[in-house]
């Protein structure tokens, strides 16, 4: 099966054609450098994305920003957002705290990217 992929490694943005058979890359064309091949392989077989969002925290005027601790499968983006939207959190929350474990069975946690209702972190905690 052929897939069209735009390379994201540099401003050229090569339009690559990737031929995938049985979950394996058979050929990549349209790339201008080696980085394109690596990217095309990963993007055509198991595309992953970081998800970032904000969550409402009870009693806080400002919402809390969160992220997946690692990229998750692209197809899990919307289910992950649904799970994040359903969260109802309480302060205090520290940057780095896990607010949702193993989101959508991805094995990846959702963590806070800022602190709410806490004293600033010490460098060791960061």
């Amino acid at each position: 099966m052929e897939q069209l992929i735009t390379c994201i490694n540099c401003p050229i943005g090569c339009r690559m054609t990737v031929d995938v058979e049985d979950g394996k890359v058979v050929s990549v064309t349209g790339n201008s450098c080696k980085r394109g091949i690596t990217y095309a392989a990963q993007e055509s077989i198991a595309p992953k994305r970081m998800v970032t969002a904000v969550v409402y925290v009870r009693g806080s005027r400002m919402p809390l920003s969160v992220k997946t601790s690692e990229p998750i499968a692209k197809k899990l983006i919307f289910p992950c957002m649904q799970a994040i939207k359903a969260l109802m959190l309480e302060a205090p929350i520290c940057m780095g705290d896990v607010v949702l474990r193993d989101v959508c069975g991805s094995g990846v946690d959702v963590v806070a990217t800022k602190s709410i209702g806490t004293v600033p972190l010490t460098p060791e905690q960061a």
Partner: peptide
């Protein structure tokens, strides 16, 4: 709140608030 900050300086991908927090900590320190 999106990620993609700090690759050159910290060699990791951070979100905006996380990048800022590193400087804030140093400022406090």
């Amino acid at each position: 709140i999106h990620n993609g900050f700090g690759l050159h300086r910290f060699k990791v991908e951070l979100t905006g608030p996380e990048y800022a927090q590193r400087d804030v900590l140093r400022v406090h320190e």
